[in-house]
Design a protein around this nucleic acid. Structure first.
Lengths: 142, 142
DNA sequence: CTGGATATTTCATGTTGTCAAGTAAGTGGG
DNA sequence: CCCACTTACTTGACAACATGAAATATCCAG
């Protein structure tokens, strides 16, 4: 009943698992530093790119729209997000980051050390190689 | 207000974010296929390596021990896990996968396609390179 | 204009997570 | 031995997140 995957692939998968775990850990930690939950931080990050319909937030988060209602409610009650009506379609509500929300999002991004620390170990050539390998792995063929 | 991180690092970070998202998506999906939540699947995976004290499960999951109680309760009520007393220390309870739990864990691991599909794109040399880069990134110096 | 699709919300319910308090059992100094 | 202290786990209260079903409002095609 031994695995039919070769040991090398298995090791890479395990390493990716470690990366995933560490990434999440740091993300939650950074969010908590700003009194945000992970989900709230993700939504705020999305909205920093511009006002977004509730439906689209749900799609990006891969969850039900009814769930987004609560998350945006909590962000709104703290003045980080506001709901606007879409003039083009009065059914949709656009969630938009307020000034305070944008600031928080900016500071949040700044405290995401996952970018700097681990990658600082690698030379520019190595980062290029890593980029290309990840691209191919993800099926991105530029 | 442009980022002070170079574009290459930024792209790698974004790629890692994509990997993390896809990994999670597939993991939850695989768990759901076996009527498990993500947390339940993680605990069951842990226990497939052997009986484990509640405390240690909490450490691995990076959560409070009181949280583990509920997760193990739910797994136990479905016959996938059982609690045993540790003869060496009567304070500790060992959570252990039952036969059914081991089977479920095995099938779960088998349906984690993240291993095969994306990495199949890479040659053995590329996988070796990826492994070494990830190792260095994670600070694992063998 | 009407019927069906779409966007959002509300409600009921379940899981995950925290924290504080409680119980049971190991441990060490007097 | 005994007492205080720590450790392991559970319980209870509560918040956030997640789903699904039903309600409301709006859009759109025929």
């Amino acid at each position: 009943m031994a695995s039919r995957i070769d040991p090398l692939t298995l090791e890479v998968v395990e390493l990716i698992g470690t990366v995933v775990a560490r990434y999440h850990e740091e993300y939650e930690e950074a969010a908590a530093k700003h009194a945000l939950t992970g989900a709230q931080a993700r939504v705020l990050g999305l909205l920093s790119r511009g006002p977004t319909p509730m439906r689209r937030i749900a799609q990006q988060l891969k969850c039900e729209p009814s769930n987004v209602t609560g998350i945006v409610d909590r962000l709104e009650s703290r003045g980080l997000v506001e709901r606007r009506l879409d003039p083009a379609d009065r059914r949709v509500k656009l969630a938009a980051a307020t000034e305070a929300g944008k600031e928080t999002s900016e500071r949040l991004r700044g405290s995401l050390d996952f970018a700097r620390e681990p990658l600082a170990e690698l030379s520019a050539d190595e980062r290029t190689a890593l980029r290309d390998l990840l691209r191919r792995m993800l099926g991105i063929e530029p």
